[in-house]
């Protein structure tokens, strides 16, 4: 019990510190999710604490992901009128982007001969964690492994995003929002918030739409590709 409270407290404190650090030095590799996770892993491995005992406290933070997904309805509603203007371009980009994200991961894995359980676990990597875990358990992968791939997709998008965008010379707020939301879900949305409110709203809408699309198309296409 005391341990659980300790792990909850340490997670929150490290998160706040990581955020503070990032507001001073906004170097892409130092996004709060990387630094705080890295320090926690360091603490757990140096004191030989298992992930299970960490999760006795961690699960109380993790449980908030569900209501967080439900709350995505709010920005969707809030920006409903403004979205109507760009609805078609966002809809087309998100639908085809979700498809590309799914197909590119699965096809590369099949081509390079990964194990089926791994392929099924990385299929949903571009989708926000709680939904990705849901999709993975539906298609028969390992949900906790999916979380790892989802985090790699999220963190790498937040790190490479600024370079890719300047390479492509793209500064359109809608394109930026769509890119981060699609490739890097929640972590990308946190990154998009640094650009401005339009980018953040578009990114969270993109993440939501792509989660919906992915949960509809993944179970269908995975059966076509694997078998």
């Amino acid at each position: 019990m005391a341990n659980s409270i300790f792990f909850i407290a340490i997670t929150i404190i490290l998160y706040l510190l990581a955020k503070k650090l990032y507001s001073h030095v906004s170097f892409p590799l130092l996004v709060p999710i990387t630094t705080s996770t890295f320090v926690i892993i360091l603490i757990l491995s140096s004191f030989h604490v298992s992930y299970e005992s960490y999760m006795n406290g961690g699960k109380w933070i993790n449980i908030m992901l569900g209501p967080a997904v439900v709350s995505f309805a709010y920005p969707l509603f809030e920006h409903k009128q403004r979205l109507k203007t760009h609805f078609l371009s966002i809809f087309i980009s998100v639908l085809s982007g979700t498809f590309i994200g799914f197909i590119s991961g699965v096809c590369l894995s099949i081509w390079l001969g990964l194990k089926q359980s791994v392929i099924l676990s990385l299929a949903a990597k571009s989708v926000t964690t709680p939904v990705a875990m849901g999709i993975t358990s539906i298609i028969g992968g390992i949900p906790s492994l999916t979380v790892v791939y989802v985090m790699i997709a999220g963190i790498s998008g937040a790190i490479f995003g600024p370079y890719l965008l300047s390479l492509l010379k793209i500064d359109h707020p809608i394109a930026i929002g769509v890119g981060y939301g699609l490739a890097s879900h929640g972590i990308g949305t946190a990154k998009a918030a640094e650009y401005g409110e339009v980018e953040q709203a578009i990114s969270s809408i993109t993440m939501t739409l792509s989660a919906i699309f992915a949960s509809l198309i993944s179970p269908f296409f995975i059966h076509i590709l694997i078998k």
Binding site: S89, V94, G101, F160
Partner: peptide, 29 residues
């Protein structure tokens, strides 16, 4: 094979980002 799977996720993330920003950039502008 673990490192390969990580590499795949990195490549796929970059492909997804490049594709979707470019597409929505052209559609929006």
């Amino acid at each position: 094979s673990g490192l390969i799977s990580i590499g795949i996720v990195l490549i796929s993330t970059i492909v997804t980002m490049v594709f979707s920003t470019t597409l929505s950039f052209f559609l929006s502008s």
